[in-house]
Every structure is written in structure tokens, then in C-alpha cells.
Design a protein around this nucleic acid. Structure first.
Lengths: 220, 220
DNA sequence: GTCTATACAAAGATAGAC
DNA sequence: GTCTATCTTTGTATAGAC
């Protein structure tokens, strides 16, 4: 047994740093659960510490303040969050690229509900802690992908559409399944955890966005 | 001067009830502002009273507890919120009905940002105070309008689509402009208050949803 | 109806022992 | 690194005077 995770003794214990990081991650996970439900102010350190299985004092040893903890959680999310849009590439057909993007985003809504909700909460509050990064990184990323979409349109592969609004529609529509899951469950009686409902969700969004609702006329 | 709004004397003063209701409404408005930003727990009565221009004690005279106030605010929202979907009617063409619905909902996102956000917050938290009404009224309403959509599909006026998912797409997409306004402003530099941006938003959503993105083939 | 004063609990954060 | 005890602030709510 080379590693003793609970060893509280000396300084340069092998595995000590790892154990410390593991505990920090446990606290972040608990924080995500509570922040995503009640927001920064609404969640208490008491409740977070309880959920993480540590004492409040101990939590404050790892994260010196509530806000530091909150920022630390948000930071982790942003990385996950911008991944799918990065994958959009001019070499793909728009059908494949957008269809795939929809699927990936619905998967995110299924597998990372809490992240989606915390992100949403932060936006609703005016994103005081994320505004900078939105205006820098995200804006640049969207601009880059908008060019790809315009390239498709110029090549006649896509009907004319404002790329920004297309992106907003894709975001809004897919995130809705995470943020409003309660409403969806109240109405449809299903969640994305149900494989059939998941596939139906992806399929319907893809069909509406790509093909539209109105029957095609015979003429061009 | 038959009406003395500030008269603190007797009981059956004419205009007394009206003045009382006006003050209650001012408190509700202030509560909406703060609840929609920080949630039920995150908003303090102190801040709400301050925003409404009354003392905290006085606020508690009109609304005996924080939760009562919160519920009172939510109740008002729900009515506004279900209005647009009620207007959907089988006698319209689907193009007109859905096109109009999109416009109305984007108007809501422009004119009732705070309501949209508070509704979103409540959903994210699992809608503890609204779940009942969602499962009853809203579910029935959606079921009714889904029949209209299916009627259109059966008549060949609409391509086959699951009505529920269509409704979720319309909700998600339009509300996004209220709830994620900060993000949109960070990227596009515009808000729905800008008439051009408003029209572009309505137009693009309508075009994507009704017409789709892929160019029509020559054949049927 | 409105105010001052206050009770009482919860919550963030620190001090210091071990 | 972890714990107990404690300080301080904030926040909901009530009592009672005017």
C-alpha cells in the first residue's frame, strides 16, 4: 500500500496532492449541485459542505470564500460548454455539421443538466463573473463559425439566414431540454434519460431546423 | 378633493382600497425585479422594500411572509405566459398561426424580460410551487394545441413533426432572447429593444422553422 | 397603516487547539 | 489538515407605540 489517502501527517506525502485535489473536486461537485439549484446567494456553505461530506470549516480551508468556490465551479463549466461549437468545420456538409451539433448539444443537456442550469442562472443574473470571457472568447468563436455558415450560404448549400440567429436558435432549443426538464416532464411525461425520447428529440430538432415545416412546392 | 390617498384615519375611505392595491402592486413589481435576478432565497426583503420605496415592516404588513409575496408574483406571471399559445387556432393556416405565435413570443421576451427570467428560475429549481399547475392546466392546453398541429399534418399542410417537440423548440428559441440577453448582447451587440434587431429575430426564426435551412430540390 | 425596537435564526468567516 | 468555539452580519419576522 504505497498510498495512504487519509495520512494527515507530514508535507511531501506521495498521493497527498492527489487526495487533496480529489477532495476539492468532491466539494466542487457538491457546490455545482446546490449552486445550480439555488444560485450563488441561495446556496449555503453549510448545505454544500454537508452534501460534500466535509465540515464547513474544512470547506473554507480548501476554498477561502464562497465566491472563490463559485468561480472555480463556473470556470470548469465554460470549458465543457464551448466544446461542441468548436467542432463545426467548413469541410463538412452543413447538413452533417449542424445535424451533428444538434445531437452533441442534446447529449450535453442529458448528461450535464446541472452545468447547463448553473450557466443559465449566471446568464439570468447578468453574468457578472463571465461577461468578460463572453465578450472576448465566445464572441470571437461565434464570429469564426458565422463565417463558416456564410461560406455555406454563398456556395448555395444553405438558404440565406443570419448566422447569429441560427446559432441562438440552436442554443436555445437544445438547452431548453435541460433547463426546463421539469416542464417537459410535466407535459410529455418523459426525460432525455429515456433513449426513445432522446432520439425523438434529436430527430425532430434536426428535421425542423434543416428541412423546415412547410411542404416543398413542385417548382424551384 | 374627494380622494385623499394619504389619509391614515378611518376605515371606509373612498380610494383607500385602490391605494392599498396600488401599493401592493408596487411591492410586487419590486419583488419581480429582485426575485428574477436572485431567486427566492437570493433576494432579501430588505432589498425589495428598498426598491419599492417602503419600509420592510410595511412590506410585511401587506404580504405576511416572503413566500406569500413570491407566490403572489408567480401567479401573475402564469396568466400572461399562457396567453399566446391559447391563440393558436385550427382555422388559420399553419404558416400564419406559427408565424404569428413566434412574433408574439419574441414580443414577450422583449417586453417582459423579468417575468421570463423568474419563470425560468422557477423551472430550474424544479418548479416546487408551479408543478401542480403545469401538470394540470398547461398539459391540457398543450394537448389541445397538439391536436391542431396534427390536424394540419394530416391535411398535408405541415410536414410530419412531433407537436410536443415543435412547441418546445418554439418556447426554447423565443425565451432564449430574454433569459440569455446578456450573452446575445455580448456577441451581437444588440438587444430586442433595437427595432431592426427585433424584426431580424422574428424573421429569422420564422424562416428557419417554417422553411428550414436546406435548399429545396427541384423534384417533389 | 406606518414606524421603532427587538427577538431570533442562519450564514459567512476567523481564531486557535490538536 | 481538521476540529470546536466564536465573532459578525444579514435577514425574517413580531411587539407595541403612535
Amino acid at each position: 500500500m504505497p498510498i495512504t489517502p487519509a495520512a494527515p501527517t507530514a508535507v511531501s506525502n506521495p498521493g497527498r496532492a492527489a487526495a487533496s485535489e480529489a477532495r476539492k473536486q468532491r466539494i466542487r461537485d457538491a457546490a455545482l449541485t446546490l449552486f445550480s439549484q439555488f444560485g450563488l446567494r441561495g446556496a449555503s456553505l453549510d448545505a454544500i459542505a454537508d452534501q460534500a461530506g466535509v465540515s464547513k470549516t474544512n470547506l473554507l480551508y480548501y476554498f477561502p470564500s464562497k465566491e472563490k468556490l463559485y468561480v472555480s465551479v463556473l470556470q470548469q463549466i465554460l470549458n465543457t460548454w464551448l466544446e461542441p461549437i468548436r467542432a463545426i468545420d467548413a469541410d463538412q456538409t452543413p447538413e452533417a455539421a449542424i445535424g451533428h451539433y444538434i445531437r452533441i448539444k442534446v447529449e450535453l443537456s442529458r448528461d450535464h443538466v446541472q452545468e447547463s442550469r448553473l450557466f443559465c442562472l449566471e446568464m439570468i443574473q447578468g453574468a457578472p463573473l463571465l461577461k468578460e470571457e463572453l465578450q472576448q472568447d465566445l464572441r470571437a468563436l461565434v464570429e469564426e463559425k458565422s463565417k463558416v455558415i456564410e461560406h455555406w450560404i454563398a456556395g448555395g448549400k444553405l438558404l440565406p439566414v443570419d448566422p447569429h440567429h441560427l446559432i441562438y436558435l440552436l442554443w436555445g432549443t437544445t438547452q431548453h431540454y435541460a433547463d426546463f426538464a421539469v416542464q417537459i416532464e410535466a407535459i410529455s411525461g418523459k426525460t432525455l434519460a429515456d433513449p426513445d425520447f432522446f432520439e425523438a428529440t434529436v430527430d425532430n430538432i434536426q428535421r425542423i431546423v434543416l428541412g423546415g415545416l412547410l411542404p416543398r412546392q413542385a417548382a424551384i
